[in-house]
C-alpha cells in the first residue's frame, strides 16, 4: 500500500525520530511511504482557541497536501483527531466541506491503522523493559483507540506492560491551556507522573507526542530516570 505520512508540526520540529520510526515500521511491513512536503500544521492550535478562520487556512494546506493520497497515517491521536473528527465540523457549510470529509475518512492514527486497517498486531519489534501506557485523551475519546496500542505492545518481545491507575486521566497538556493555565496543567501533570512512577515502569509510552512532551517535561525537571517514548519508537526497535 502507498501510505502518505502526516507529520504533525511539533513532531516535525521536536521529534523527527518519531516520524522516522513510523516510516521504518511501515516499510518493514512492505509498504511504500511517501511524505507530501507541502504539509504544515493541521490547524489545531487556532481551532482549540476558537480562531476557526485561522484554523481553516492551515487546514486547507493540509487538505491540499493530501488530496491525492490513498491513505494518510500520522503518529498522533490528537492531530489525527483534528482531521478525522474536527475537520467536518470546521468546514461545515463551507465550499470545501466535501474535501474535509474525504480527508477525514482516509486519515488514520498510526496504531489504529496498523491494527484496524492492516490487521497487524505483531510488527516484529523487540524492546527490553517495563513500560506503562498513557492514553492520550483525543485518541482515546474522540477516536476510540484503547486496545490497539496494547495489542501491539503485547507482541513486542521483552516488553512487560504495567498499567497505571490513571491511564485514562488527562496529562494536562491541552495545547495553549498548558501555558494559559499553567498551575492547573502542572497539577494534572503531577497526578499523571505520580501514577506513572507508582507502576515501577522504566518507560512511559504513548501514541501522542504532545502528551509525552508534557509528561517528559515534568519527569526531567524532577530528574526521574523514567524515559518516555512514542509507541512508534518502541515498535521500530528490534
Amino acid at each position: 500500500m502507498r501510505i502518505s505520512l502526516f507529520v504533525p508540526c511539533f513532531v516535525d520540529q521536536l521529534y523527527p525520530n518519531v516520524a522516522w520510526s513510523v516510516v521504518r515500521v511501515l516499510e518493514r511491513l512492505g509498504h511504500e511511504v511517501v511524505f507530501p512536503e507541502s504539509q504544515s500544521c493541521c490547524g489545531q492550535p487556532p481551532f482549540n482557541s476558537g480562531y476557526w478562520d485561522d484554523a481553516r487556512s492551515s487546514a486547507r494546506v493540509t487538505m491540499k497536501a493530501f488530496r491525492d493520497a490513498e491513505v494518510v497515517v500520522g503518529p498522533s491521536g490528537s492531530c489525527v483527531t483534528m482531521i478525522k473528527a474536527f475537520y467536518p465540523d470546521l468546514f461545515k457549510g463551507e465550499t470545501d466541506e466535501l474535501a474535509a470529509r474525504e480527508l477525514a475518512a482516509k486519515a488514520h492514527e498510526f496504531s489504529s491503522f496498523l491494527v484496524n486497517v492492516l490487521g497487524v498486531t505483531d510488527v516484529g519489534a523487540k524492546f527490553d523493559g517495563k513500560v506503562t501506557f498513557h492514553d492520550g485523551c483525543h485518541g482515546l475519546r474522540e477516536l476510540g483507540i484503547k486496545s490497539e496500542p496494547r495489542a501491539l505492545l503485547a507482541n513486542v518481545k521483552g516488553l512487560e506492560l504495567i498499567e497505571m491507575c490513571e491511564a485514562e486521566t488527562c496529562c494536562g497538556f491541552g495545547g495553549t491551556f498548558a501555558v494559559k493555565y499553567a498551575t492547573i496543567s502542572t497539577a494534572m501533570d503531577e497526578v499523571k507522573c505520580a501514577s506513572i512512577l507508582e507502576t515501577g515502569a522504566d518507560t512511559v509510552v504513548s501514541n501522542d507526542s504532545s502528551c509525552l512532551m508534557q509528561i517528559r517535561g515534568m519527569l526531567e525537571k524532577e530528574k526521574s530516570s523514567v524515559r518516555s517514548l512514542h509507541l512508534a519508537e518502541i515498535l521500530a526497535s528490534r
Binding site: S49, H138, R141, E168, C170, F177, A178, Y181
Partner: peptide
C-alpha cells in the same frame, strides 16, 4: 478556555 478538552466529562 480553562480546560484541556480531555472529554472525560462527556
Amino acid at each position: 478556555a480553562a480546560s484541556s478538552l480531555c472529554g472525560a466529562c462527556t
